[in-house]
Design a protein around this nucleic acid. Structure first.
Lengths: 224, 224
DNA sequence: TCAAAAGTGTTAGATTTACACCCATGA
DNA sequence: TCATGGGTGTAAATCTAACACTTTTGA
């Protein structure tokens, strides 16, 4: 029952680009590689795909292993398969990006895994072709964020419009006009103003908003 | 020198969605699968990734094997890795789409490989998850064709504006306004009108145009 | 002479962008 | 009282979409 035995197999891994938003900066989780080859180099977090495990499942497992979180928003970036991309052996890797709310990530667990949040504009040289993966992931994420309401994955359940705007600016890498931004947000009925006021960010206080997924599903007219 | 030997390896293949434009229709090349499992089912053309071969190289090789052509425009669609996607064994497949000019493809070679051009709107049920791959490839290609001049890969070196328009319509799956379309084309200086007239398509004859890659590289302001 | 495809501009509406001041509050 | 971030509307410019007739020529 082995159909393809004349062909050779290869190692397949997954690498995850985990985006977070903190201090008005878009960041990703990277750490020092803990195995050979490349031990000690900055690297994405990843893992090998097991025999009886789908690649999305493998990415999910790796993500849960690192963060302790489940049902994280996650999309495939692509497959990376240059022969010499890994300095040790021939490994094909499939990159995924994920979006999490930084505050949901347990600090102790983070330190335990030896990963840290690094500003997307200050990424050091990474192991293998991981820099390329990060660039591609960011490009994909930018495209997505303009047409689907994924920003809320990076924010707490309640957020101010200024936070939301700063998130867009961090992702897009350019400033946007405050009034135009708020005008567009107002047109999206699934971004709901609550009665709550955030007093942390300013003296006056800012209205807290919420993303209503149900309302979005009924009328998904998102456009930024 | 085996770093990862505690992990298991898997078969990795590539599958190519080859787009062509003929009779004002967007088509892809599919054939009857010639091996088990799934022998006889409609299927994309593909092949296994060899030990010392990059995945892009593998896709290029498979493409050349099938078409006899080199330097074909080709982009990765993504990796497909559900455990049971292949009915025989666990195989991860990486899909690519490619664009060729149908007239450059030798008919004899095509028949030899037992593949045929099938209208994108009339794709039958395909082997494994190949229908999903085709759908994803089309989505990616549509995105690309709006912002990069890839249409010319599907057309002969000289083409009429009507041909170009019909190509866009076939790719996008919707009609576009002739005058608006030609207006936009006129703004792109790298789509050059030649002195030549095509008399095949109409009695009056239509001006033949050419894509000037050099001019495009100097001022790549493409937008459709 | 007529059928069939080529070719050509204008206008209304929609969308996008630019822009500056008052408000509420805690320190 | 003042420094800080929150909040608000209008007008010009640009872009998009809708629309119909004349030309050429082979059959």
């Amino acid at each position: 029952m082995t159909y393809y035995k004349e062909h050779s197999k290869v190692w397949v891994s997954v690498d995850v680009i985990i985006f977070g938003f903190d201090e008005d900066k878009l960041k990703i989780l990277i750490g020092r590689r803990q195995m050979d080859p490349g031990r000690g180099e900055w690297s994405l977090y990843g893992g090998f795909v097991n025999d009886h495990e789908g690649i999305d499942d493998a990415a999910g497992r790796v993500l849960q292993e690192l963060t302790g979180m489940r049902k994280i928003y996650m999309r495939q970036v692509g497959a990376y398969g240059a022969v010499d991309r890994d300095p040790g052996e021939r490994v094909i890797s499939i990159a995924y990006y994920a979006l999490i709310n930084v505050r949901d990530y347990d600090e102790a667990l983070r330190r335990e895994h030896g990963v840290e949040w690094v500003d997307i504009n200050k990424i050091p040289e990474l192991y293998s072709d991981h820099n390329k993966m990060v660039g591609d992931a960011l490009k994909k994420m930018r495209q997505k964020i303009r047409v689907e309401p994924i920003s809320f994955r990076l924010l707490p359940p309640l957020f101010t419009l200024t936070q939301l705007q700063h998130l867009y600016e961090a992702v897009m890498g350019e400033d946007v006009d405050k009034r135009n931004f708020r005008k567009r947000i107002k047109e999206m009925d699934f971004i709901e103003k609550t009665e709550l006021i955030d007093k942390a960010s300013s003296k006056r206080g800012a209205a807290l908003y919420r993303f209503n997924r149900r309302a979005y599903n009924e009328d998904p007219n998102f456009k930024l």
